[in-house]
Structure formats: C-alpha cells, structure tokens
Amino acid sequence: MPHDHHDDHAHSLLPPEPALRVKALETLLVRKGLVDPAAVDAIIDQYEHHIGPHIGASLIARAWNDPEFKKQLVNNTDGILAEMGFGGRQGEHIVVVENTPACHNLVVCTLCSCYPWPVLGVPPAWYKSDAYRSRAVSEPREVLSEFGIIIPQDQKIRVWDSTAEIRYLVLPMQPKASFGLDQADLVGWVSRNSMIGAGLP
C-alpha cells in the first residue's frame, strides 16, 4: 500500500474533551436502556431546525393583526399554544406580557436560563451570561441602552424573572410604520430580542 506509513491525519479528528465526556455519558445511558439515541437526535433536530424565534414572531404578528387572537394569546396562553402544537414539554407555563406606552417588559432568568423554548427555541448566549442575569434586574435601563434601546423616563420597566414553571414572552407594541401590513409581512418585523424585551420591533 502506498499509504501504509504513519500519518497523523489518517485517523478521525479527536473531538474536544467535553464532547468525549458527553459521548461516554450517552453510551452509558444507552447501555442502561435509559436513553434512546434516536430520541436524542430528534430533540437536537427539533431545536436546530424547527423550534425557534420564527414561532414566537408568527404569534406576535398574528396578535398585532387579529385582536381576538391577541386576547386569546394574552389571557389563555397555555390553551392556545397547546391547541397550536406549541405546548411546553417541560410542563412549564408561558405567560405573555404586553408592552404599553406606560410599561416596557424585560425577561431574565436570574437562577439559570429558563426561557420560553417552545416559542423561541434555545436562548442566545448573552441571555445565559452572568452579566445579563445579574444586571437585568439591578440596572435594566442601562442594560437596554447597551442593546441600543432607550426607554423614555416616563415608561416604567418591569423585569420578569423566569422560573422552571413560568416562562415569559414579551408582546411588543406594533411599530406605526408596520400598520396595515398583512401577517406574513409583519413576521419580519418581530426580532427575537423584541420578544425578550431586549429589543424593539
């Protein structure tokens, strides 16, 4: 064979150390019959390709255009989400908090990183950072200014601390410039950050 000499690149690249620990853990759990690798792959596929902020954005866009749906979304959130197939898999409740000219809502999880997965997917790194988790509560106005948002002094900021049981979704105010657009066009106005309160549409 022409290539039978030792070649550093002949074998597969070694994954980073934590990846090897995850593989070891998964192998052990599969061997014990506690984990089904196909189910793990399905969960990854769900969060990588199917569940994300586009779901929340479609809900917000519809709420902007349809007052009856908005009422349902705010008052019967779990019911309407379950009906639409976006119910929480960890048994959590989702609460929709509506921005008004008098009050801007901001969502954080000071304990860990609780987040409305079914409608926003997995949280961005900044949401999980210590800096955000501590400062969102102590100095929300300053934090929002770092996101480029200036909240008028006469608009109160209400910070919602998520838990394992209750996750929050912000319903932003519809920008005047988007009035009259149909739902499909409105979706593009709803950024992920605006549904956390760390952005405006």
Binding site: P18, V35, I44, E48, G52, V122
Partner: peptide
C-alpha cells in the same frame, strides 16, 4: 445557529 458546537446540542438533548 441554536448550538455553537455539536456537543452542546448533544448534552442539552440528553
């Protein structure tokens, strides 16, 4: 992307 490294996704899903 939802996960920055494949093992992040794996351990999350586990």
């Amino acid at each position: 992307q939802a996960f920055a490294a494949p093992w992040h996704a794996e351990v999350f899903a586990l």
